[in-house]
Write a protein that binds this DNA or RNA. Structure first.
Length: 542
RNA sequence: GGCGCCAUGGCGGAGUGGCUACGCAGCGGAUUGCAAAUCCGUGUACCCCAGUUCGAUUCUGGGUGGCGCCUCCA
């Protein structure tokens, strides 16, 4: 039985969907008016893990993640840049989707956009007015908070306490300072839709009440979002939903926010005035620099309800830790899921897998951690525990247990094919181009010729020819050009270099072999000497 | 001012009324020509003060400190 912490009751509660086996999950998405930042990705990553686990536990999950594609911030941006509001919102929505893809968010089923539901919002607002829960003021339609019993129950505040704390200058003519706009009448030049109250646009909050209703119904299982949305956004969603006569969300889940050195990184954080600081939290920077797999792992290593530290030290530690798991998994990491079935089948198979008792104990702990309010961090710790114990197993048992590690990991979104390459991104690896390597090879050949070791120099040239690289000796040094496919040349030339280094090692000329290794390292290539020979790969810095 | 959250070893970060979290870093060892990677071993941490208890880091009360929300924010 899954337990979920419900913000509304501030308790962990047994989770039972409204319709057995069917879960409706609504998670607030973004207002697309600026570059995607890491905070925007917290919800998707975390709730992707939640959705995967709900599926593993035998549920079908409809996961709705909305896009608020019309809003004051978009309009302001359009006014500032001269670009149309449509272009801005489309561009940043696309960017958001790109990052969801890079982070392998695979469970979202719906991305409704605000502008696609204007008629439904107008109908909804009309309904609220008809029920005397909203009223028309000079500049729009407002929700009447005083008509609501228990307004503030989600964020734990009372209306009378809020008046003194209210720092915003509200439009005059409101019945209560906390009343909020359902419909904003357009000023000249602003985008607008016709409505019974005049041309205008929806206020913030109404889109979620309407779109959740349109996609999941008036009562649904889980509503999620960032902690900062608790008030006023979610509070007002509840107000609207209940005023409309809906039971609205039964369980509210709020994810912790990004912080840097212990302090939340928010929109109006003074530190954000420094572009260099702000840049650190852009999704593009983080994913390019540390790899999407690292970012996702870092997020899942913590607990969804707690803030997440994004200081560089924390990110590097996460990457190192993940790298350890990746190395253990080896090639199996990149194997596509064998099943065509879903998470439920995968979990059943994982539970049925025959593994030694110590591994099975970790497996049990993993499942218990996920069942207990989606404890992805504890669950990942179980994976480390397994990997550690697997070292002590005979090879054959180890293979089955490693598969278990991988398959359990995949149930929370980690260990996707391609992830290994994703922890060390191209931005970090020095460009290991063929020309860097060729410079080294030609140097080695020149050295051999100087020693009058023509057998070696000829062997190098022959191997290069074989690899699709033609060498031309000239008075002022050798040049080279491609004669074959570039894709295979790199591998072939590396084979040659490794062979030359092996020769030096066999001759006990370690100075020479180390020179080769150092030169390659300088070009961003790391050599790994193993019992089966030497392999090469991109060298990670960090 | 109101509401709420959190205080764990060098760092990050779980968790529990008595028993190893885990990762990173560090240290010792194995392996290696030297490295890298890998493996083995290693650290008696739980803010302070009372109370409950046979026993509290874990429960209760108080204190101190940090953070969040009450405005835009994921």
């Amino acid at each position: 039985m899954i337990q979920v912490f419900n913000t509304l009751t501030r308790r962990k509660e047994p989770f039972t969907p409204l319709v057995p086996g069917e879960v409706g999950l609504y998670v607030c998405g973004v207002t697309p008016y600026d570059d995607c930042h890491i905070g925007h990705l917290m919800g998707p990553v975390l709730f992707d893990a939640v959705a995967r686990w709900l599926r593993a536990r035998g549920n079908r999950v409809r996961f709705v993640n909305n896009i608020t594609d019309i809003d004051d911030k978009i309009i302001n941006r359009a006014n500032a840049t001269g670009e149309s509001w449509q272009d801005i919102s489309r561009r940043y929505t696309d960017q958001y989707f790109t990052f969801l893809k890079r982070l392998r968010i695979a469970t979202v089923t719906d991305h409704p956009r605000c502008t696609e539901f204007i008629p439904q919002m107008i109908a909804y607002i009309s309904d609220l007015i008809g029920r005397d829960r909203a009223y028309v003021a000079a500049d729009g339609v407002y929700y009447d908070v005083q008509k609501q019993d228990g307004y503030g129950k989600l964020s734990g505040r009372r209306l009378d306490e809020m008046i003194s704390g209210s720092r915003v200058e509200r439009s005059s003519g409101l019945r209560h300072p906390a009343d909020f706009a359902l419909w904003k009448l357009a000023k000249a030049g602003e985008p607008s839709w016709e409505s019974p109250w005049g041309a205008g646009r929806p206020g913030w909050h109404i889109e979620c009440s309407v779109m959740s209703r349109e996609t999941l119904g008036g009562s649904f299982d889980i509503h999620g979002g960032g902690d900062d949305l608790k008030f006023p956004h979610h509070e007002n969603e509840i107000a609207q939903g209940e005023a409309h006569g809906d039971a609205y969300a039964r369980c509210w889940m709020h994810n912790g926010l990004i912080q840097y050195e212990g302090v939340k990184v928010g929109k109006s954080d003074p530190r954000m005035k420094d572009p260099a600081f702000a840049g650190r939290f852009k999704a593009g920077f983080l994913v390019d620099t540390y790899g999407a797999a690292t970012i996702r792992f870092l997020i899942l290593q913590g607990h969804y309800r707690r803030p997440n530290e994004f200081a560089e030290k924390a990110i590097i530690a996460a990457r190192t830790a993940l790298g350890r798991l990746h190395r253990q998994l080896g090639a199996s990491l990149d194997q596509a899921p064998t099943d065509s079935g879903g998470e439920a089948e995968a979990l059943a198979a994982a539970l049925a897998a025959s593994v030694p008792p110590s591994i099975a104990a970790h497996r049990e702990a993993f499942v218990a951690a996920m069942d207990d309010d989606f404890g992805t961090g504890s669950a990942i710790a179980c994976l480390f525990g397994m990997v550690s114990d697997i070292q002590k197993l005979p090879a054959q048992e180890a293979a089955a247990s490693l598969r278990l590690v991988r398959d359990l990991g995949r149930l929370i979104g980690i260990f996707q094919p391609g992830d290994a390459a994703d922890t060390t991104s191209s931005a970090e690896v020095a460009p290991a181009s063929l020309s860097d390597i060729m410079a080294l090879v030609l140097h080695l050949r020149q050295h051999a010729r100087a020693q009058r070791a023509f057998a070696t120099s000829d062997r190098i040239r022959a191997a290069l020819t074989e690899a699709g690289v033609a060498v031309k000796d000239a008075k002022d040094g050798a040049t080279w050009e491609m004669t074959g496919p570039a894709e295979t040349a790199m591998a072939r030339v590396m084979e040659l270099v490794i062979a030359l280094r092996q020769q030096a090692r066999a001759d006990k000329d370690f100075a020479a072999s180390d020179r080769i290794r150092d030169a390659l390292a300088g070009a961003g290539i790391a050599l790994t000497d193993g019992p089966a020979g030497t392999t090469w790969g991109a060298a990670a810095k960090g």
